[in-house]
Design a protein around this nucleic acid. Structure first.
Lengths: 226, 226
DNA sequence: GAAGGCTTGTCACGGTATTGTCACATGTTC
DNA sequence: GAACATGTGACAATACCGTGACAAGCCTTC
C-alpha cells in the first residue's frame, strides 16, 4: 500500500483544484468527480481511503451518494462531508447516513487537512494493532518503544521509523527507494546509501537480533521471516 | 445488566434526533428533554447513567442545570457537556461545575460516541470518581484539581487540559500535532513549539514529579509508565 | 476605566543528539 | 582479479529541545 487515494466529489472546479493541490502536497493520490454518479462509480471502482463529499451537488446530491454507498453493502468508504454554513439539518442527516465527520464551508484548508488525517488515523488504528513483532524484536508504535528479547532498546526517531517500515513489510524486500519514500518522506532528495548507514546503526542497537535485517544484494533490505 | 439510560438535554430537535439514532444503535436507552427544567426532572426521576447536556439552552442554561444537580446532593449524574466552538471559558466553568467531559460543536459523531463510552467506562471502573493517576500525579477531572504527592498544584486551564490528555493516553506518545488538535482544537493555527513551552511550565509546576512527562526526541511527549 | 497580575503564544539562543555524506575497507559475483 | 555492492569509521551540518524573555490578551480589583 503506497499513497492513499482520496476521492473528491464536488461540482465547483475551483474547489476541486484547491483540494487537489493541498492533498497532493500531503502525499495523497487524488481522484476527482464533478457529480454524484461519477463519485459513486469511482468510489466503487477505486475504493479510495477517504471520500470528500460536497452536500450541494446538482442532480444527485451528497445524501443520495451516501445512500448509494450504504445500499452497496460492500467495504465501507469513509466519508468526510463538506457542508455549507448553516445547513444544520444537513449535517445531521449526513452523519445519520454514515458520514464520519464534516467540515463547514468556507473551511480553513489547515483544518480540513487535520480532519482528513484524523479520519484516516482512526481508520488505520482500527485495522492494525500497534505492536509489531518478529523474532526477538518487538516494536510498539503507539508508545514508541522497542524491545529485543524483552530488553528495551533506545532508538532514534529515524531508526524507529525504519524498523517499523521493515516490520510492517516483514519478509518483503524493501528497496532503498521505497525506504526513502516512506521513512524519509516523498520530498527527501538525497543519497540513496544513507539508508545503509541507518541500517548499520539499527543493527548495532539490535545487538543479538541484528540479523533479523537481511541484506538482499542488488535490491535492498528485508526482515527475516520466522 | 440492562441497557444503560442516557439523557439528552438539547433544544434543537435535529440534534436530539441524531444523538438518539446513534446512541440507540450502540444499545443505549435514550431519554430526551428539550429544556433545562425538563432535563433536571428526568435526571432526578430516571437516574440516567449519563447526561448529554447542551450549554446553550433557552431560559435555564446548561450551567444552571449543573448547579441544580449539584444542589441536590444525591447520587451524582455524570455529565458530558456539548459546547459551541470557541466557548473556551465555558469548558472550564463546566468542568468546575462538575461535568465529566465536554465535546465541542460541531462534533464528529464518532468522537462523541467514543467520549460517551469513555465516561461510562470511567464511571464503572472507579466508583471513587473520575480521578486519573500516574506516579505521584493525580488529576480530578470532575473537580478540576491536580495533586502531586498529595499536595495540591494550581494549574491553568491549558496546563490542565494538556496534562489530562497525556494522562488519558498514558504511556503513548503524543505528537505535537496531536496535542494541538486535542488540547488546543482543530481550528488552532499556530506554532507547534507552543506545546514545548506549556510542557515546560507544566513540568515546573509538577516539581518533584516533573519527570513523569518524558520527551521522545523527534516525536513528541509521553507520560511515563509505572 | 485604569492598573496590575495572570495566562498564553512566539521567538531567539545555545547546547546536544541526531543525521547525512563521504572516503575507504571489505565482501560478493562473474 | 575486475567490477560492483555493501559495511565501516569519521566528521560536519543539521534538527531538535530546553530555556529565558516578551508582548498581547484577559480578568480582577480598586
Amino acid at each position: 500500500m503506497d499513497k492513499k487515494k482520496i476521492l473528491i466529489v464536488e461540482d465547483e472546479a475551483d474547489i476541486r483544484e484547491l483540494l487537489r493541490y493541498h492533498l497532493e502536497r500531503e502525499g495523497f493520490d487524488v481522484l476527482e468527480a464533478g457529480d454524484g454518479p461519477g463519485g459513486l462509480a469511482l468510489a466503487r471502482s477505486e475504493r479510495p481511503a477517504l471520500m470528500l463529499l460536497d452536500v450541494m451537488l446538482p442532480g444527485m446530491d451528497g445524501f443520495d451518494v451516501l445512500r448509494g454507498l450504504a445500499a452497496e453493502g460492500g467495504p465501507v468508504v469513509p466519508v468526510l462531508l463538506l457542508t455549507a454554513r448553516g445547513e444544520e439539518v444537513d449535517r445531521v442527516v449526513g452523519l445519520t447516513l454514515g458520514a464520519d465527520d464534516y467540515v463547514v464551508k468556507p473551511f480553513s484548508v489547515r483544518e480540513l487537512m487535520l480532519r482528513v488525517k484524523a479520519v484516516l488515523r482512526r481508520q488505520d488504528r482500527s485495522l492494525s494493532g500497534s505492536v509489531l513483532r518478529r523474532g526477538g524484536v518487538s516494536l510498539d508504535a503507539e508508545r514508541h518503544r522497542a524491545e529485543v528479547n524483552g530488553e528495551p532498546v533506545a532508538l532514534t526517531a529515524t531508526e524507529f521509523r525504519l524498523l517499523e517500515d521493515l516490520l510492517r513489510h516483514s519478509g518483503a524486500v524493501r528497496t532503498r527507494e521505497q525506504l526513502l519514500n516512506t521513512v524519509w518522506g516523498y520530498s527527501f532528495e538525497g543519497y540513496a546509501r544513507t539508508v545503509d548507514t541507518h541500517v548499520r546503526r539499527l543493527r548495532a542497537k539490535l545487538g543479538a537480533a541484528a540479523d533479523v535485517i537481511e541484506t538482499v544484494r542488488g535490491v535492498g533490505y528485508r526482515l527475516k521471516e520466522d
